[in-house]
Simulated scan of single mutants.
Amino acid sequence: MKTISKQAIISDEVRRYMQALGLTQVDIAKTLGVQAPAVSRKINGSRRWSIEDVDRLEADGCPIGLRILYMGEEVGA
């Protein structure tokens, strides 16, 4: 069974989101508050996605998010 990293899953979801809405890396860069080359590096795996990136993308409508458990209880929901 092939193991896929969480970073690769985020990149795949961002690619799908961009394709579905016709967004560019410049659009995603504006959402994240970075330059387009940084988005390219994140999507291609040479730079990591941060929790803040995921939060910003989720707030923008991208179907990704984090579920955080603390001592068995979901927090921040």
Rank of each mutant, 00 (worst) to 15 (best):
Asp60Ile: 01
Asp60Lys: 15
Leu32Met: 05
Ala77Trp: 04
Leu57Glu: 03
Glu52Cys: 03
Arg56Cys: 11
Arg47Ser: 15
Arg15Val: 04
Asp55Asn: 15
Ile28Met: 06
Gly22Lys: 02
Ala77Phe: 04
Ser40Lys: 13
Leu57Asn: 09
Gly45Thr: 00
Cys62Trp: 07
Ala36Thr: 02
Gly45Gln: 02
Ser46Tyr: 07
Gln35Arg: 14
Asp12Glu: 14
Arg41Asn: 11
Tyr17Gly: 01
Lys2Asn: 11
Asp55Ser: 14
Gly65Pro: 06
Ala59Thr: 06
Pro37Val: 00
Ala29Ile: 00
Ala8Met: 02
Ile68Thr: 09
Cys62Asp: 06
Arg15Cys: 01
Leu69Ala: 08
Arg15Ser: 01
Ala20Glu: 14
Ile51Glu: 14
Thr3Ala: 14
Ala77Gln: 11
Thr24Pro: 12
Val26Trp: 09
Trp49Arg: 03
Asp27Glu: 04
Thr31Met: 12
Ala38Gly: 04
Arg16Glu: 10
Gln7Pro: 03
Gly72Tyr: 09
Ile68His: 07
Met71Arg: 15
Gly22Thr: 02
Met1Gln: 12
Ala59Gly: 11
Val34Ala: 14
Asp60Val: 00
Asp60Gly: 04
Met71Cys: 12
Lys42Leu: 02
Ser11Val: 00
Arg56Tyr: 13
Ile10Cys: 08
Ser50Leu: 08
Ile43Gly: 08
Leu57Gly: 12
Asp12Thr: 07
Gln7Leu: 03
Met1Ser: 12
Gly61Ala: 05
Arg15Asn: 08
Gly61Asn: 05
Arg15Ala: 01
Arg47Met: 12
Arg15Lys: 13
Arg47Cys: 03
Ile51Ala: 13
Met1Ala: 13
Tyr17Glu: 01
Thr24Leu: 04
Arg48Leu: 11
Gly65Glu: 02
Ile4Tyr: 12
Gly61Trp: 10
Ser46Phe: 04
Val14Pro: 13
Lys6Asn: 13
Lys6Leu: 05
Gln25Ala: 08
Asp27Lys: 03
Ser50Asp: 10
Val26Phe: 11
Ala38Tyr: 05
Asp53Trp: 07
Gln19Asp: 11
Ile64Met: 08
Gln7Asp: 02
Asp60His: 15
Lys42Phe: 07
Asn44Arg: 15
Lys42Arg: 15
Asp27Thr: 01
Val34Lys: 14
Val14Ser: 04
Gln19Lys: 08
Arg47Glu: 14
Met1Tyr: 12
Arg67Asp: 02
Glu73Gly: 00
Asp27Gln: 01
Arg48Asp: 14
Ala77Asp: 12
Ser40Asn: 15
Ala77Met: 08
Leu23Ser: 00
Thr3Glu: 12
Arg48Glu: 12
Asp55Arg: 15
Gln7Ala: 06
Gly61Ile: 04
Ile10Met: 10
Asp53Tyr: 09
Ala8Leu: 03
Met1Phe: 06
Ile51Thr: 14
Val14Tyr: 07
Asp55Cys: 13
Lys2Ser: 10
Ala38Pro: 00
Glu13Phe: 05
Ala59Gln: 15
Ala38Glu: 10
Gly65Phe: 06
Asp55Thr: 10
Gln25Ile: 00
Arg47Trp: 07
Val34Asn: 13
Thr24Met: 03
Asp53Phe: 05
Gly33Ile: 00
Ile64Asn: 07
Lys42Gly: 03
Ile51Gly: 10
Gly72Val: 04
Arg56Asn: 15
Gly76Cys: 06
Glu74Gln: 13
Ile64Tyr: 09
Val14Arg: 03
Gln7Phe: 02
Ile43Leu: 15
Ile4Met: 09
Tyr70Pro: 00
Ile28Asn: 09
Pro37His: 09
Leu66Val: 12
Arg47Gly: 00
Leu66Gln: 08
Thr3Met: 09
Asp55Pro: 01
Lys2Gly: 03
